[in-house]
């Protein structure tokens, strides 16, 4: 398949030059695409590792926070709990931005926490620890969301670029090469034929001259 040749209307020198130019363009494109694929693949692997790590950490943190919560709720009254959770954080917002990696637009989520004003001595210190634990958990979940979407986007782009690189590598470039090779051999053959024909004519002419 890869060694197939292009269909040529006429095996001419102009066609030969055109094919060589086309091959140069194809190779240039191949190099550009291959480099882009390299960056994207690396990003994909890194994102995949990050997703796995975040997921594992989230599971661990959920267990840890729940355990802390149960422990604290055994000696803190529910209304104190509610009161503290209302005043602990004034606002929690997520800024949605974007970052560009090798031409792919990926989401970037940044969290902003504004702490509320309260008297720390009025509440048990463990209550603050629990709330911090949950805050970290939420932050990690936001990061996981960002990473997972990025992973999907990069994966999609890798698929597209890989298809193009494969087409160039296994189809277009080998075909062009084979056709150029065929044309070159054809021209060489034609040249040899011409040479022999000229020799033959020379022989005939010299024989005639002798007679």
């Amino acid at each position: 398949m890869s060694q197939q040749m292009l269909r040529l209307a006429r095996p001419t020198k102009i066609e030969f030059i055109r094919l060589r130019r086309r091959l140069a363009t194809a190779r240039r494109l191949h190099r550009v695409l291959r480099d882009r694929l390299l960056i994207l693949t690396q990003e994909l692997v890194a994102l995949y590792r990050e997703v796995v790590e975040h997921r594992l950490r989230i599971h661990e943190e959920i267990v840890k926070c729940e355990r802390e919560l149960i422990r604290v709720s055994s000696y803190v009254a529910p209304w104190t709990f509610e009161e503290f959770s209302n005043i602990r954080v004034k606002s929690f917002s997520v800024v949605v931005g974007s970052r560009i990696v090798a031409g792919v637009k990926l989401p970037l989520l940044e969290h902003e926490v504004i702490e509320g004003r309260y008297d720390p001595t009025a509440y048990p210190i463990t209550l603050k620890e629990v709330s911090e634990c949950y805050e970290d958990l939420v932050k990690r979940i936001i990061r996981l969301a960002e990473t997972e979407i990025s992973l999907l986007e990069v994966g999609r782009e890798v698929q597209k670029v890989k298809r193009k690189v494969n087409a160039l590598e296994n189809l277009i470039i080998p075909r062009l090469r084979a056709t150029i090779k065929y044309l070159r051999m054809k021209f060489e053959e034609r040249e040899r034929e011409d040479k022999i024909r000229r020799k033959r004519i020379k022989q005939i002419l010299s024989r005639k001259a002798r007679i």
Binding site: R18, R22, T25, R28, L29, R36, G103
Partner: peptide, 16 residues
Amino acid sequence: EDRTLEYLLERELRVV
């Protein structure tokens, strides 16, 4: 095919 290759190259360079 000529034009396709040129088009793809141009687009890729733009992305790069």
